[in-house]
Write a protein that binds this DNA or RNA. Structure first.
Ligand code: FES
Ligand code: FES
Lengths: 144, 144
DNA sequence: ATAAACTTGACAAAATTACTAGAGTATTAT
DNA sequence: ATAATACTCTAGTAATTTTGTCAAGTTTAT
């Protein structure tokens, strides 16, 4: 349960590769495709969204590619996923785009809201930098 | 992102209704259907899974229905969802049923693992009792 | 016996995901 | 200029998952 679609997963892995080149080496889609084993066509879609979201900038022409638009310590996993998959919305009722009529009388509304906030809070604290320098190992040790 | 399927949502709401009758009033599927506005046929599927998982017991014959097999303070939301949707598995790589070859070399493996544990930890702490007596309001106030 | 109520497995419509295809635009090295 | 590199964008589609429905049972209280 609570799966993340491949788009989000690939997106994070792609951003990791782009982060490696920060601040001055553009990474091409082709290179990301090779290193992370995701098709070029699919990555185009993903990186395009991330670019529109302002997380990366593209450099055209030979020697071009993608570069982070901010330092890796300033880009959280949460932001990446938000751009690719929209806000955390455990249930349709929690999704601002859908909404629910009976939300007031529903016993579980608070539950899903709390869970969603928990998740978002966590994802906001992890940045690309944590992926780059492997500091996640300690976080996982601390546990819940 | 990170949606919960309706099966899980309905399951929790159904368990909430069953919990109301604990320890001695069996709740029928028909009654749950009415109160939570979910079709009888679909609830059959859901409650059947929960029964097989040992969370509820069924009482047959007239006056029958479903009863919690343990007190509402001893049944967590996590257990309900586990039965209906399997373990939390943010990515296929984290799913014991699928697995991933490159798990050792993958930078994001730890990230998804940590997130999954965070979520499971949270869901384990919330029980049906919390839904019954509205204590969730305080939990959400505390925040992340 | 009879009706209430649960049990089970098969099946199908609908939605979502996970891509692929292909044509187009911009930039730069030579 | 021009060829080569590289990003940009819109559709379309096959596979999968979700979300149910249906119908024919079985069990039990009265
Ligand atoms: S049914 Fe919408 S919040 Fe519970
Ligand atoms: S690709 Fe399997 S763990 Fe990252």
């Amino acid at each position: 349960m609570l799966k993340l679609s491949t788009k989000g997963q690939y997106g994070v892995r792609a951003m990791f590769e782009v982060a490696k080149g920060y601040p001055d080496v553009p990474i091409t889609i082709k290179e990301i495709s090779k290193r992370q084993d995701v098709s070029v066509a699919y990555l185009e879609q993903i990186l395009n969204k991330l670019r529109k979201g302002g997380l990366i900038v593209s450099v055209k022409g030979p020697g071009g590619g993608y570069i982070l638009s901010r330092g890796p310590e300033a880009i959280s996993i949460g932001e990446i996923l938000l751009e690719l998959e929209g806000p955390v919305a455990i249930t349709a009722c929690q999704d601002p785009a859908s909404g629910c009529v009976r939300v007031d009388g529903c016993v579980t509304a608070l539950l899903w809201k709390a869970l969603g906030e928990k998740i978002e809070g966590f994802l906001r604290t992890i940045t690309l930098n944590d992926l780059l320098n492997g500091s996640l190992r300690e976080i996982t040790k601390v546990g819940a």
